[in-house]
Design a binder for these strands. Structure first.
Length: 119
DNA sequence: AAGCTGACTATGG
DNA sequence: GCCATAGCCAGCT
């Protein structure tokens, strides 16, 4: 269980998303919807994806590769520079991936609503 | 300015 | 489970 500290700087939705994503533990993954729900935008999972898209322009690193869709599919892989960079990063963290699908997805799933609190 | 586009999901059949 | 459909809403044409 970790804690996110809010400040004036990260009051907007995108920044909140980044804060959550940055809390995802090494070797764990979560879904767009879980993040959206946790931030009170349960029906706006697409916006989480959009935030990931915008994260490319950020100077600070955001582990966007640890965010996949609800079935554990690497739907965002094409938005990484190289074709398999997303998969490579996840494999480097100990996950097994086959056909863009994370194996034993549920065993690696990290639910922010369950393991994170906002101060 | 109106319409289109998605790194998505929930739901009904 | 799969498939189609329909909400979603910020940003881009």
């Amino acid at each position: 269980m970790s804690t996110i500290k809010l400040s004036e700087k990260n009051k907007d939705f995108f920044s909140l998303v980044y804060e959550v994503v940055k809390q995802i533990p090494h070797g764990r993954v979560t879904s767009y919807g879980a993040i959206a729900k946790y931030l009170g935008m349960a029906r706006s999972a697409r916006m989480v994806g959009w935030a990931m898209n915008a994260s490319h322009t950020l100077s600070e690193p955001v582990p966007a590769h640890r965010v996949v869709n609800r079935s554990g599919l690497l739907t965002g892989k094409h938005h990484f520079g190289q074709n398999n960079e997303m998969q490579s990063r996840l494999e480097a963290e100990g996950l097994e991936i086959e056909e863009d699908q994370i194996l034993n997805f549920e065993d690696h799933f990290w639910d922010p609503a369950k393991e994170l609190t906002i101060e």
